[in-house]
Every structure is written in structure tokens, then in C-alpha cells.
């Protein structure tokens, strides 16, 4: 076989073809596939991060819920205690009021009794005077003996 221009020509064609394929297909294609690999890796990492965040958020939510429950329980407890206190307080108040009313009534009664006694005393005095008048069968000067009568009435 002779070396002819066909051989050289095919070699030139081959060289140009290799250069062209490398420049216009291979390099963009590899760059694109590397880019794709990177993007997939990024996407997976982002998904992982998202999952992690979700986990954290769930934990946080559970914690908040727990706190809220505790708070609510505390509030209810306090309210109950307050209610008991109020009931107790009002019981005490009512008792005190009752006591006061009772005392007032008693003192009023006492006053009434005293007044009645006074009235009775005065009437008895009058009766005594009238009785004495009748006994003595003469008019006793009320004015002259007023001092005496008063003393008598106080003694009764």
C-alpha cells in the first residue's frame, strides 16, 4: 500500500472531527452533566435540610403545646382556689353580717325592754301615787311631792 493523499486527507478529516466534537459536543455535555449532578446533590441536601427543619418545628410545636397545657392547668387550678377562697370569704362575711344583725336586734330588744321597764316604772309610780292618794284620801300636791315620787319610782 502506498501512502497517498487519501491517507493524509482522512487524517485531517479525523483531526478536525475530533476537535469539533470535543469543542461543540463533549465539553458542553460534560459541563451540563456535572451541573446536573451538582443540582441533584443540592436538591437532595435541601430536602434533607427541610426534613431536619420539619423535625425541629414539630419538636417546638410539641413543646409549645405542652407549655400551653401546663399553663391552662395552672390557670384552672388557681381559679378553683380563688373560687374556694371567695366562697369561704362570703361565708365568713355572711356569718359576720348575721352576727351583727343578731347583735343589733338584741340591743334593740334590750332597749325596748328598758323602755318598757321605764314605762312600767312610770305607770307603777303613777299607780302608787294614785294609790297613795286614795289611801291618804286627800289630794297630794304633785308638785310638792314630786321629789319624793321620783325617788320612789327609781327605787322600784
Amino acid at each position: 500500500m502506498n501512502v497517498t493523499f487519501t491517507l493524509i486527507g482522512q487524517m485531517i478529516t479525523f483531526a478536525i472531527l475530533v476537535w469539533f466534537v470535543m469543542r461543540f459536543l463533549w465539553k458542553p455535555l460534560t459541563a451540563m452533566m456535572e451541573e446536573r449532578t451538582r443540582r441533584i446533590a443540592d436538591g437532595l441536601a435541601a430536602a434533607e435540610r427541610g426534613r431536619h427543619d420539619l423535625e425541629l418545628a414539630k419538636e417546638r410545636a410539641a413543646e409549645l403545646l405542652r407549655e400551653a397545657r401546663e399553663n391552662a392547668a395552672e390557670v384552672i387550678h388557681q381559679a378553683q382556689r380563688r373560687a374556694v377562697e371567695i366562697v369561704d370569704q362570703s361565708k365568713e362575711d355572711a356569718q359576720a353580717e348575721g352576727q351583727r344583725i343578731l347583735t343589733a336586734a338584741r340591743s334593740e330588744i334590750e332597749q325596748e325592754v328598758a323602755r318598757a321597764k321605764e314605762e312600767l316604772r312610770r305607770q307603777v309610780a303613777a299607780l302608787a301615787v294614785a294609790g297613795a292618794e286614795r289611801i291618804l284620801r286627800r289630794e297630794i300636791d304633785a308638785r310638792a311631792h314630786g321629789e319624793l315620787l321620783k325617788e320612789l319610782a327609781e327605787q322600784i
Binding site: L17, F20, V21, F24, L25, K27, P28, L29, M32, M33, E35, R36, R39
Partner: peptide, 14 residues
């Protein structure tokens, strides 16, 4: 080959 390479290499869709 060049034509196909150029066409594909120009409009790559990742």
C-alpha cells in the same frame, strides 16, 4: 456528526 454535535451541544437541556 458535526451537525448533530453542534445541534445537540447548542441546545442542551439538563
Amino acid at each position: 456528526i458535526m451537525w448533530v454535535s453542534w445541534r445537540v451541544g447548542r441546545s442542551l437541556d439538563p
